[in-house]
Structure formats: C-alpha cells, structure tokens
C-alpha cells in the first residue's frame, strides 16, 4: 500500500514534468493562486511586500565582512548578486566535495564556516533569512530547475516516502491533504498544493519571514507529529521531493502567504 503510494507519488511527478515538456496544460497551482487579490497585490508590489525589507537587509549582509577571514560575500561572489541568479532554483543540491544534499540555507552556512571562517548562522535568524531572501530574490520569475544529479535520487525517494506516510496523533500524511484534498476547505482555509515556490515567505500569521522548514514544521505540529530537528536530513529530503514536484513552476521568493 505504502510502496504503491510512493510509486504513484513519483510517477505523478514525472507525468507532470512530461506533460510540461509536451506543452500540455499545467494544472499545478502555486499557493499564490489560492490567495485573494489583495494578498497577491501585496506580494507583487515591491514597496508593499514585507519580504523585500529582508532582501534589503540581505544586500547589506552580503557586503559586510565577517569571521576570522574577514571576508564578505561580495569579495568572492561580486557586488551585484547577479552571480546568484538561478541558484535558488536548483537547491537542495550536493555541494563540491560533499556527499549529502544541502538546502540553500545550509549552502550559505557552508560559506560562513568554510570561506568566512565564521560561526554558522542559527536557523530562522534574521541574518540567515535575509541572506537567503537576497539570494533567492535573484531568481524571481524563473522556472524551478532541480539539478539532474543521479546522486540526489535516493534522497528524493525518501522524501517521497515521508510525504506519503501517515504520522502524528491525527494519523495523516502530507499527501492526504496536499494531493488528495488540495483546493478543499480545511475549516476556513483552502488547502494549497504545497509547492515550495515562494520561500523564504513572509507569512502574515508569523508576522515575519520564515523558511520552508518552518512551514513544514507548522504542518507537522498541526497533525500532532514530532517535528524533526532543524538540522535533520528529513527536511532536505522533503524539500528535494517538493522541488521536483514543482519543476518548471515560476519562483516567487520572497512570497507572501496568509
């Protein structure tokens, strides 16, 4: 049953990419399309989108030297950030010399520790969110494009298995809501298809910017399941699965969500 579910999950991912390649109509919906016009406008308007404040903070952090190496991101990656164009679209990926995938936040922290010789930035810290918003913003409007690295496949498959597995006191899987009941109302809320198109997002309920991990933790808490630790590989596996499932969809970071 479980295996069948996973098989179906991955199969539907490939069918979606195939339909896209053949120019079929893409029925996938970003959370953006489930929002009312006023929130859509807030996201689209650079002066109204609160996420853009984090992009500006990120631009400052990008140019500020840090760590024992006393180097800034600009020193190696250029002042404009243009070298980061397209980068967020293909994470999680396996960094040079590593054998497990890292998501964008972890990749930035790798530069903190290896290149700046500084302490890693804590999860959900203002500085890490700002830097990832700055990097992610360089890819706004481009299609999500996970790398064709065969080493990622086993991690992505484990992500698909996590997606399909029931968990928590409420005994629900991610798929039960986001595949089988997307578009329906959970109390007053439209269940989105859960595409990772907008992260980091400014969520009104949080009153701040937050990472995809934080969003996944919210759903785990909702079904009364134990959250994974922030640095646990399970999130990266789920992120790999979600990015493949959203391949070709337009990237919107920093998005706004209710």
């Amino acid at each position: 049953m479980m295996r069948l579910r996973i098989g179906l999950c991955l199969a539907s991912v490939f069918v979606a990419s195939l339909a896209l390649a053949q120019g079929g109509i893409d029925k996938r919906r970003s959370g953006y399309q489930d929002m009312g016009p006023s929130l859509q406008k807030m996201q689209d308007d650079g002066t109204a989108n609160p996420g853009m404040l984090f992009v500006q903070l990120g631009a400052q952090a990008w140019a500020t030297p840090a760590g024992a190496a006393n180097k800034a991101c600009v020193d190696c990656h250029g002042a404009s950030g243009a070298t980061m164009k397209g980068v967020a679209l293909r994470y999680p990926a396996i960094p040079e010399g590593a054998d497990t995938p890292a998501d964008l936040e972890a990749r930035i922290n790798l530069c903190r520790t290896a290149n700046q010789k500084a302490a890693p930035l804590p999860p959900e810290s203002r500085e890490l969110l700002s830097l990832s918003a700055y990097v992610a913003h360089q890819s706004r409007g481009q299609p999500i494009a996970p790398p064709d690295d065969p080493r990622l496949a086993p991690f992505r498959e484990r992500g698909a298995a996590l997606w399909a597995a029931r968990q928590g006191q409420l005994n629900l899987s991610c798929a039960a809501c986001h595949d089988d009941n997307a578009g329906k109302k959970l109390a007053g809320v439209t269940i989105p298809e859960a595409h990772p198109t907008g992260y980091p997002v400014y969520r009104l309920e949080w009153q701040t910017l937050g990472s995809l991990k934080r969003r996944l933790r919210n759903c785990l808490v909702g079904i009364r399941a134990e959250s994974y630790a922030y640095d646990s590989p399970e999130y990266v596996m789920l992120e790999l699965f979600l990015m493949e499932r959203a391949r070709g969809m337009a990237f919107e970071a920093p998005a706004v969500r209710p």
């Binding site: 029931r166 968990q167 629900l172 089988d180 134990e226």
Partner: peptide, 21 residues
C-alpha cells in the same frame, strides 16, 4: 483520513506531548 479518536496503537511519530494519549 478521519483521525482515530480513541486509539493509541499503530500511530507513527506522535508528538511527545500527545504520546500514549
């Protein structure tokens, strides 16, 4: 998808504060 309201067995990764309840 309806949660089991009076069962504790056969559930996976239940949050610590709800375990066994």
């Amino acid at each position: 998808i309806m949660p089991p309201y009076y069962r504790t067995g056969g559930l996976q990764r239940v949050a610590r504060n709800f375990q066994g309840k």
